[in-house]
Amino acid sequence: RRRVRAILPYTKVPDTDEISFLKGDMFIVHNELEDGWMWVTNLRTDEQGLIVEDLVEEVG
């Protein structure tokens, strides 16, 4: 499975499927959606939700 790491922190918009995260958080990518969004699991918090790919980098 594809893994990505947050390069910046992010605070979710209330009442959306987004998740908040810290710089350095690792995610497993489940689905890549339109307009650069990804459905992921945050490995630190075990939370699932949407993040935008501009805020993460690939992990080898």
Rank of each mutant, 00 (worst) to 15 (best):
D46A: 15
A6L: 01
M26C: 13
T16C: 05
D17K: 13
N42H: 08
E34G: 15
L33V: 10
G49T: 01
T16R: 05
R1C: 15
E34P: 14
G36K: 08
A6H: 00
D54Y: 14
I51K: 00
R44W: 03
F21Q: 00
G24F: 06
W39E: 05
F27H: 02
G24E: 05
S20R: 02
E32W: 07
T45Y: 01
L50R: 15
V13R: 14
E47Y: 04
L43M: 12
D25Q: 01
V52K: 15
D17L: 14
W37Y: 12
G49Y: 01
R5P: 01
L22G: 06
I19G: 01
G24L: 04
T45N: 13
D25K: 01
G60C: 15
D35M: 12
V40K: 00
E34A: 15
R2H: 07
R1S: 14
D46H: 15
Q48G: 05
V4G: 02
G24Q: 04
V13A: 12
V40G: 04
T41P: 00
E47A: 07
D25A: 02
N42A: 10
D35W: 11
D46K: 15
V52Y: 15
L33N: 08
P9M: 08
L50Y: 09
R3D: 04
E47K: 07
K12I: 03
N31P: 01
A6K: 01
N31W: 15
E58L: 08
D15S: 09
E57R: 08
W39S: 04
E58S: 10
L50G: 04
D35C: 14
L43R: 04
V52G: 12
F21R: 00
I51H: 00
L8F: 13
P14Y: 07
L55N: 10
L8N: 10
K12F: 03
D46I: 12
M38C: 05
E57M: 09
K12W: 03
V52N: 15
W39Y: 09
N31V: 14
L8K: 13
N42T: 02
R5Q: 09
N31K: 15
D54F: 14
R1H: 15
T16V: 03
R2E: 05
Y10I: 02
E32N: 12
R1M: 15
P9H: 11
D15Q: 11
I19Y: 01
L50W: 12
R3T: 13
D25S: 01
F21A: 03
L55F: 15
E53M: 15
V59E: 08
T16M: 03
S20A: 04
R3H: 11
D25W: 03
P14T: 08
E53L: 11
N42G: 02
E53I: 14
E18N: 04
Q48M: 11
V56M: 09
T41I: 08
L55H: 13
P14I: 09
I28D: 13
K23E: 11
D15W: 10
W39M: 07
I28V: 12
N42W: 02
E57N: 06
L8M: 14
V29M: 03
A6Y: 02
M38A: 04
A6S: 07
N31G: 11
D17S: 13
W39G: 01
D25N: 00
